[in-house]
Design a protein around this nucleic acid. Structure first.
Lengths: 110, 110
DNA sequence: TTGATGTGCAACTATGTAGTTGCATTTTAA
DNA sequence: TTAAAATGCAACTACATAGTTGCACATCAA
């Protein structure tokens, strides 16, 4: 699992947008879908959808296969799992820190 | 645990910025810290730090206690845990979907 | 071959975000 | 009481982002 900060940064940026999360859900639900089909389901233009897909692709969250004149996008779960693990780990760190501070405040030994 | 979409959205937006992640790390490391102290450690101005703290506060990731003329910020792990769980769950959905598609492609029964 | 469908590229606009500076207000401590 | 230290508020700039439109190019199917 690739765990560098750049990956996490790109995934977080990609997910921090409701339009992109909606697009991801559509792709995940259909399995494979083109930008044109996506643009029909969402309220924004095909070009706007493609820009979002570029961001998602750069984050490693989707991939596009060329089939004839179509480009069919599908979802890649790995980077999402990596980022979820990163976040879970950070959350645990904070919890431990708070427990430690609480113990110090109560005068108990660490 | 509060699991509505608005919370997840705000947390993702808050985390999708390296300056804010750095600030969070500083706060978590120190336990409690003021905006002025933070501004000394980072390369940006106190006002910029305060704007980041406002975003983090709105996402429920930090809280500020007024003590005399100071405002000491500390970290709140809960919303981070909620968002990590949301992401983990989404990742599992995608995995299941892909396994299902693979089985269909192999002609096995679902 | 030709019209229809799908993609790719570029220019443009509008709005949001990150950051700055300046100054007023509050609080501490000598 | 007064200077220093911390916060709060507001205006301003620069740049990134989200979205649009228009048109050219590629591909399928009748």
């Amino acid at each position: 699992m690739n765990m560098d900060g750049e990956t996490v940064d790109k995934v977080l940026v990609a997910l921090a947008n409701p339009a992109r999360r909606g697009i991801l859900n559509e792709i995940a639900a259909k399995g494979q879908v083109t930008a044109t089909t996506l643009a029909d389901r969402v309220t924004i233009s095909r070009q706007a959808v493609i820009k979002h897909l570029d961001v998602l692709k750069d984050a490693g969250l989707v991939t596009g296969r060329h089939i004839g004149r179509e480009v069919r996008y599908s979802v890649l779960p790995e980077q999402l799992g990596v980022t979820a693990a990163w976040m879970k780990n950070l959350s645990r760190q904070w919890d431990r820190r708070l427990v430690s501070i609480k113990r110090l405040a109560e005068g108990k030994k660490d």
